[in-house]
Amino acid sequence: MVLELGQYIPGKSGIHHLDPRAKLLGLFLYGVALLAAPTGASAFLVGSAAVPAIILAGLPLSFIWRQLRPLVIFLAIIFIFQVALTPGEVMATIGPLQLTRQGLNYGLLALARVFFLVLAASLLMATTDPLALADGLERLLRPGQRVGLPAEELALMLTLALRFVPTLLEEAERIMRAQVARGASFRGLQVKNLMPLVIPLFISAFRRAEGLAEAMEARAYRGGEGRTRMRQLSFQAADFLFLLLAGALAAGTAYYRLRFGG
């Protein structure tokens, strides 16, 4: 399957059991720390804080590799551009390109930021049930409701999307078979070839949306107001500890940057 990125791997580890809000906030703080790190080396040091979490989560190395593999070329390009195009103290010359100390530093910094952020994000996705993630996101956004942010509705949209992805995939398969039976060919990835699939799929998706809206209304849905939730989230000691560690990482890195420059 192509869509392995962001896949959920059910498990019973301590990381799996953390509150989704703690994990989302933790990822945010980790991102802050990565951005605050002033040098390539410090960014790698900060980034490696994710390693114990991955070990705790018990994710197989092969899984981690499959998550990061699509990034390799992208990372290489970022690195090469940063190294080659940053002026400064020349360390070596390769043909027309000059390798500078500053370039190497920025290259490593950019590499570390993207690499570790993706690593941590896939750790979050791999250890958190998508539904719990949607729930956590909603609770975190809830204070924004006062200024008009539709947190409830966003979370509902997310869960509806999760619910309907497999249904629409099935539908796409059915349409493809029906079109092939009528002589269509889906070889090649030209847009023109995909039209006999995409158009019926869209029409059916809209029809489904209409039926769904009706069914939701029939079950007394009237927007987020006055809704309660069956799933409750509760912060445990482990969640506070996790956030404390993530907060210390972010604060420590920010302090280091202010103290020793960047």
Partner: peptide
């Protein structure tokens, strides 16, 4: 398929 709204 149109009246089930949740993922579980």
């Amino acid at each position: 398929d149109n009246q089930l709204v949740a993922a579980t």
